[in-house]
């Protein structure tokens, strides 16, 4: 028996909004530790890694490890039926081919449930080695979304260059070029409004605007985003989900052969 009750269905809705551009379907792996998801987009350029810790749920029970394959468009339809203040309880029997979502309004004045068919997905799991990153940049998530949106107007790629002076986002296209430089801020008492750069070595890598834009769909989950860069290694874009876990995206760089 699997049962997980989350105080805010809106949080799960935000997670879904943050991954459904990249993935049509995905397997949610449920264990004692919580709910995990790892999946690549169809072109194998990016990977989504979601971790929701069991102790972030109001109630969590997982008697046996369970993998639930779901169509994310269908799952979005289910969550569209929840109110913004509803709690959600996710339930499945062992070896079941369906999952049930129950939405409860705060004062129990409305309770709805939706049963959805599960899918058998044959998904490839990637082994991701621990990496010592050359540069780790923390910045406000809204600022990152803004920069990616602005620069995407001009080109298909963004070069992220990091030195100890700051981080520079650059693009070029048919109409010209664009550059945004962010210096490290000293606003340490307001960490989620700061730009914090931890640089071991300078790095400069090129990434697709389209994918970066998809990642910024996670902006409502967290005030801050962390970019981890290292030469010849995929970029990691990480959003912490307060009290619940994290959502990480990996993106393969564009590299001259």
């Amino acid at each position: 028996m699997f049962e997980a009750r989350l105080a805010s269905s809106a949080t799960f809705k935000k997670v879904l909004d943050a991954i459904k551009d990249l993935l049509n379907e995905a397997s949610f792996d449920c264990s004692d530790a919580g709910i995990q998801l790892q999946a690549m987009d169809n072109s194998h350029v990016s990977l989504v890694s979601l971790n929701l810790k069991s102790d972030g749920f109001e109630k969590y029970r997982c008697d046996r490890n369970l993998t639930m394959g779901m169509n994310l468009a269908s799952l979005s339809k289910v969550f569209r039926c929840s109110g913004s203040d509803d709690t959600v309880t996710i339930k499945a029997q062992d070896d079941a081919d369906t999952v049930t979502f129950m939405f409860e309004a705060k004062k129990q004045e409305k309770i709805s449930d939706y049963e959805m068919k599960l899918m058998n997905l044959d998904q490839e799991h990637l082994g991701i080695p621990e990496t010592e990153f050359s540069c780790i940049i923390k910045l406000p998530s809204g600022e990152f979304a803004r920069i990616v949106r602005d620069l995407s107007q001009f080109g298909e790629s963004i070069v992220i260059s990091c030195t100890k002076e700051g981080v520079k986002f650059s693009t070029q296209g048919d109409i010209g070029t664009g550059n945004v430089k962010l210096a490290q801020t000293n606003n340490f008492d307001k960490e989620d409004q700061s730009v914090i750069i931890d640089m071991q070595e300078p790095v400069s890598l090129t990434f697709s605007c389209e994918y970066l834009n998809s990642f910024t769909k996670a902006t409502p989950l967290s005030n801050q985003v962390t970019l981890s860069l290292c030469d010849n290694v995929p970029l990691v874009v990480e959003y912490q989900i307060p009290d619940l876990g994290h959502l990480k995206y990996y993106l393969a760089p564009k590299i001259e052969e």
Binding site: M40, S43, H44, V45, S46, L47, E124, H125, L126, G127, I128, P129, G155, E156, S157, T206, S208, N232, V233, P234, Y250, A252, P253, K254, I255, E256, E257
Partner: peptide, 14 residues
């Protein structure tokens, strides 16, 4: 723009 790589060039399927 340089060509796009895939994650399979960096990580192994397990």
């Amino acid at each position: 723009t340089p060509p796009q790589t895939t994650l399979l060039a960096f990580f192994e399927i397990c």
